[in-house]
Design a protein around this nucleic acid. Structure first.
Length: 569
RNA sequence: UGACCCGUGGUGUAAUUGGCAACACGUCUGUUUUUGGUACAGAAGAGUCCCGGUUCGAGCCCAGGCGGGUCAACCA
């Protein structure tokens, strides 16, 4: 018995090492970089972080923790025309919310603009960089193609002095954008396109969110990233697969810098793809700008701020990130795996509460008018420490419209004419009359209750086949509830060559229910508070909520085997 | 007619120095239940892209194919 417990605990704790862990262990065994481990998470502040970034954050900070190393947060802000302070702030908030702490290790690539500039001048002096005066189109045509090597620029061999002069004037504002560029002198015949004299500096006359108008020239990604890693003492620079072909260039710049045995190393892994969503910043930005969603934190968005507002917990995202592992295989992960992590966490932690989404009035005809009482309800059956609460009961109640059928099919266990069911934590009730309006729509049910079944159990031991949730009309809090469905109807909306991803948008991804009734316990709930509405799903308080008008998001529905069986028919 | 990377149930990941392909999600059954939830028990589902080779033995090593991805932004 003790053995069994130990084994299951160990298998929980001992996660399988992924290929990056193995490489780091190998580096450590070889005593590389004085056996230090130092990673970094380097977002460009040009948009909001999404669940794919969360994978990277968990990976990088996770490695820092696992190997007793450190992890930097670095804003890769080399392109002032796209970057804004708003994004910097949201990124910091998201990383913190996920539960990670960069301590004092906060950096900006823009902090290195001076050093980068000096380094570029050194390259010019070493005859390893030159200014090219041609326009973009001409240079592109000289680059060749993946299968045909390029040709050298006519400006490739100008003198060091001329290059120095030109580069200096590029930065004084004398030249227009696009007229001059600084290129590394490497190899126009390289089979790797990135080695064909890549651009390292370009002229951009935009205001930088941190350096203002100090610079007219800005380094390209490839000219900044490896150097920043080097200056920060990063040992393992983990990025996504598309940078694989950049690695020789990364190494080339590090070669120019390296003075000791210390050397950062780039390792690539497969980015996260999730079914039924898009994961590129460009496309998410498009959804926001064109008003297909209500902002970056729309609860339907795969952004971290969207997931947070939707009711996801940091634990569930971290757990998901652990579960999916790290490989170089480009795949597509089923969202159900994410939802499993969520439900798993919420089941253990969420306060239970009763709420009626589509109300149907029930009058308990044998319950005295003007009377009410308070009944005991369990706050979370998974966690006794969460205790109990009181739920008010009275003559007039709401139940879920779906919980009554006038002519119930064989396997429908809920309420019907003449049937007896249990109201959770309250009484057994029996339906006697169905009241309809002139159009035949059911507007009210008349039921009787059995006073002996208080609390929900019968002294004579008779059974009922269903337990329904309910609220007292007089005491319930009227609220708005927003139901969400997937944003896209296609598993892989941007996986179609000739069809725009927006063609696959689900027109019913948002459904607003303006008149729902929740038990009074939620009265003082705050935005982001998670609840389980019993039998329905997990819901949280939306940031649009006010004291006068509570607004809930349905985070994720509960598993519903009845609905599933119905759907099959 | 290039370079680099990747091919294990429906999905995602495992499989010490080659040794009965395992786990999770999902799916389906059943048990318990004051949530048609949870929990628990069980089932189906791959023979590891293909063809050879080495070996007593190959998912793993070797050769050749096939399939997929990335790369030709003054983006990151």
């Amino acid at each position: 018995m003790a053995d069994k417990n130990n084994n299951s605990e160990n298998s929980e704790i001992q996660k399988k090492a992924n290929f990056i862990d193995l490489q780091i262990e190998e580096d450590l065994n070889q005593g590389k970089n004085e056996s230090r481990v130092h990673t970094r998470f380097p977002p460009e502040p040009n948009g909001y972080l999404h669940i794919g970034h969360a994978k990277s954050i968990c990976l990088n900070f996770g490695i820092g923790e696992k190997f007793g190393g450190k992890t930097n947060l670095r804003f890769d802000d080399t392109n002032p025309s796209k970057e804004e302070t708003e994004y910097v702030e949201s990124i910091m908030e998201d990383v913190r919310w996920l539960g990670f702490d960069w301590e004092e290790h906060l950096y900006y690539t823009s902090d290195y603009f001076g050093k980068l500039h000096e380094f570029a001048i050194q390259l010019i002096k070493d005859d390893k960089a030159y200014v090219d005066d041609q326009d973009a189109e001409t240079i592109a045509s000289q680059k060749g193609t993946p299968t045909r090597s390029g040709v050298e620029s006519p400006f490739r061999n100008r003198s060091v002095d001329e290059n120095l002069d030109l580069f200096s004037r590029m930065n004084t504002g004398e030249f227009d954008e696009g007229t001059h560029v600084l290129r590394a002198k490497i190899d126009m015949a390289s089979p790797n396109m990135h080695m064909r004299d890549p651009f390292i500096y370009r002229i951009i006359k935009a205001h930088h969110h941190r350096t203002g108008d100090k610079w007219c020239v800005y380094p390209m990604y490839d000219f900044a990233h490896g150097q920043s890693d080097y200056w920060e003492g990063i040992t393992h620079s983990i990025c996504t697969l598309e940078f694989e072909v950049h690695r020789p260039l990364y190494d080339w710049f590090v070669d120019q810098l390296q003075e000791t045995d210390y050397r950062p190393r780039q390792i690539e892994f497969a980015r996260l793809n999730l079914t039924y969503t898009v994961m590129s910043k460009r496309k998410l930005l498009e959804l926001v700008k064109d008003g297909h969603v209500n902002g970056w934190d729309d609860p339907r968005m795969p952004t971290i701020s969207g997931l947070r507002r939707r009711g996801y917990t940091p634990e569930s995202i971290r757990n998901f990130s652990d579960k999916i592992g790290v490989t170089k295989v480009n795949g597509m992960i089923d969202v159900s795996l994410l939802e499993f992590s969520l439900k798993n966490h919420l089941n253990k932690t969420a306060q239970r509460v009763m709420g009626v989404l589509n109300p149907l009035k029930v009058v308990i005809t044998n319950y005295p008018e003007n009377q009410s009482e308070e009944l005991d309800a369990v706050n979370n059956p998974e966690d006794a420490e969460m205790g109990k609460r009181k739920v008010p009961f009275s003559r007039e109640l709401y139940i879920e419209r779906d919980d009554f059928m006038e002519d119930p099919p064989r396997k429908f266990f809920r309420l019907g004419p003449g049937r007896e069911v249990r109201l959770r934590y309250a009484y057994y009730i029996t339906c006697n009359d169905v009241i309809k309006d002139a159009n035949g729509k059911i507007i009210e049910l008349h039921c009787t209750y059995d006073p002996a079944t208080k609390g929900g159990s019968s002294p004579d031991g008779r059974k009922v086949k269903a337990t329904l949730h309910w609220v007292s009309v007089e005491h319930a809090v009227k609220s708005e509830v927003r139901l969400y469905d997937r944003l896209f109807n296609d598993e892989n909306p941007d996986g179609h060559k000739d069809i725009d991803f927006k063609e696959f948008m689900n027109p019913d991804s948002l459904q607003v229910l303006p008149e729902c009734y929740i038990e009074p316990f939620v009265k003082d709930a705050n935005p982001l508070d998670n609840f389980q509405f019993e039998r329905l799903g997990y819901f949280n308080v939306d940031s649009d909520s006010t004291n006068k008008n509570l607004v809930f998001n349905r985070t994720v529905p509960l598993r519903d085997s009845w609905a599933k069986a119905q759907k099959k028919k």
